[in-house]
Design a protein around this nucleic acid. Structure first.
Lengths: 232, 232
DNA sequence: GATGCAGGTGTACGCCGTACACCTGCATCG
DNA sequence: CGATGCAGGTGTACGGCGTACACCTGCATC
């Protein structure tokens, strides 16, 4: 192999370059194409070379999450807790919308990384700064669940209908007969007329609807001095 | 191979036996051990034999979900919508607690099966029967999200602390310094004293807390005659 | 007895993550 | 200057995965 004819030699790899390449690959292709082999090829390197920079694939995914979470805006000072938290969560949502694969990767991590703990810690801090008791803050964080990341656990990412429009129309008619309530909702005023086929919801509206419902509920509990004893 | 010395010949496979074996395997071992190869071995059969009964692994997983969803109690009649829905969702939760792998499999399905649509359709129907408008029902279903299945999107399935108690104590002290708010919550009154290490939450309480918060919110919107225009 | 077909088999392919031994080129130091 | 060490990239190989495809086998039908 003598002199390694790369033309201009590759710049040496490092953890950061690996992670950023992985994120880029997931963005451009799909998360399933992020295999050690594909990623190595993308970087002009042999698969095993990656293991000098990440311990294994799990840590690669952790690192990718860190890159994403690092893009969330820092807490806004000044505003009241509700506005500040709302704003921050919507910032997280904007980040996740830019990287659609990220929510499922976040879910899949068995343990939080330090960067993730940083984010969660700061959100907890925002509730505390708003005067929430330790206990209420705890419950409230659980109630938020994945919504702190700016995504809802969708019931189903895809619609039950096939992609082909003609087939879809037929399938929809059959579905309407068997599942009238679902059909009713799917064609309700919240969907633009043309988009019955396909998922026609305004996801942003649905997210904010649920987020505000929760935040309002939190506020109500907070104002009435919630204690462990009294449920709501 | 002559006469196939199975002793008493295996009963012939069918889709149902395959699915039930897969569920049992996931229950006894773990969802990761549900590979076509393992499952076949469990059934005393060669891997490719399974493909006579399920089209591929995706459909196997779909079928496993159907088995689980089929165990959820039917809607309780009579009671008001809130009690009935609460009861049904908590029934779903009991089922999922018996099959801890199921929530992640449900999440992973790109399209709902007919059994799943049946369940969702009936939940939608319960809101409609309670007098909810099509539109409000739609938003409310989105707001419930994965909670209709009886599970919350946990931020993290595992704690950030290592399993070994001694290491964990040390790790916790370090964590307390860096992430004071998280530490505070983790040691708050909602956790029993001994369980600071490990995830000491009462998950059932957290689930019901959030569920009731949402249901109360739904009720409030419903009572004040929610229309698309006015947000909360 | 011939025919067909449902159901189980065996082999093989291409993907995956990664263990392990190896090489290569540079910085350091006597 | 040569020797040494080591960080970083390489090559080979293993065991797992899902599954395509050709095959066999035994029973029901006519």
């Amino acid at each position: 192999m003598a002199q390694k004819v790369d033309g201009a030699r590759r710049a040496p790899l490092n953890r950061d370059r690996v992670l950023r390449a992985a994120v880029a690959l997931a963005d451009d292709a799909a998360i399933e194409s992020v295999s050690m082999r594909n990623l190595a090829q993308e970087l002009g390197v042999v698969p095993m070379a990656l293991y000098r920079h990440v311990a294994n694939k799990e840590q690669l995914l952790d690192g990718m999450v860190d890159v994403i979470v690092g893009q969330i805006d820092p807490p806004a000072g000044g505003a009241d807790w509700k506005a500040a938290i709302r704003q921050r969560i919507l910032s997280a949502r904007r980040v996740l919308l830019r990287h659609p694969w990220a929510s499922s990767v976040i879910e899949s991590r068995p343990r939080p990384t330090l960067v993730v703990l940083d984010y969660l810690n700061s959100v907890v801090g925002m509730f505390r700064a708003g005067g929430f008791s330790v206990d209420l803050t705890h419950h409230v964080m659980h109630a938020l669940g994945s919504r702190v990341w700016g995504f809802t656990q969708e019931l189903f990412p895809g619609s039950p209908l096939p992609a082909d429009p003609e087939q879809a129309a037929a399938a929809f008619r059959e579905l309407s007969g068997r599942y009238p309530h679902i059909a009713e909702i799917a064609t309700g005023p919240a969907h633009d007329e043309g988009s019955v086929v396909g998922q026609g919801c305004d996801d942003q509206f649905e997210f904010e609807f649920a987020l505000d419902l929760l935040l309002d509920g939190f506020e109500r509990l907070h104002q009435q001095g919630w204690r462990s004893a009294n449920q709501s």
